[in-house]
Amino acid sequence: MILINIDSLSTNELQHIAQMEGLKGWKTLDRDELISALEDWFEEMDEGGIPVGNGHGTYGRYTNNLTNHRGKAAHFKDLPRTGELPPSYYDSTIHLLLRDPQWAYAYWSLPETIQGNKTSFDDEDHSGESYVIRVHQTELATGTTTSSDIAVEVKDQEWNIHLPALGCSYSVELCRLHPDGNEEVVARSASVETYLPYWADRIEELAMDRDLFLLHFSSLVTKTGEVAENVVLKDLALTVSKGVLS
């Protein structure tokens, strides 16, 4: 539903959105109440608030602001015999996707997640076993590897992995821990890399030299002093501008 510039929507349009979203009592609400009710409604749906909100903040692509007319109107039908998507697949795999240099997203599948502990497709009883995600962090400069474990449950299928440092390679393993103390690596992901920016440990150089700042930073700052949205960049901006840019 369209939420950008919600303040500038007409009452008719707000009523239409409220109706489409199935808000009770929308006919009796005045404009301010409609805005408030819609904001609450979307907050409730997402627990994170309206991502665009009141026409402010950055927005990646204008194309996707194209009109959403439909609301809850009927949708097209699937092709014949297509069935539903399975919750997972009958294999033991784990994948790691880089969300940004500080976070990665891991998802995995295990046969016992689908079938339950006692009816796993391999006919083995997996109750009593536990699982961990083992995160391997290798410094690219030195080759030094450290590992840490995240305990997960058999019903889990995904996890957000914090990446504590730049300049490292990360991979994850899905490990099954047996009651007798043995452990088994069920699946291993490909690695993802985060690189240390050249300027990361030379930031003072940038801060002290106007020409360098102009060349390397000015293209990333708007005329009103907003730095391009980027977690690594923001850290650099705070340092280089001694808190002026944020």
């Binding site: 991502p51 950055t58 927005y59 990646g60 692509r61 996707l97 880089l98 969300r99 940004d100 240099p101 985060t194 690189y195 920016p197 391009a228 949205e229 980027n230 977690v231 690594v232 960049l233």
Partner: peptide, 11 residues
């Protein structure tokens, strides 16, 4: 560097 023009500058 790894990057995009999306919110947050990455994926």
């Amino acid at each position: 560097a790894f990057s995009s023009w999306g919110q947050g500058g990455y994926s």
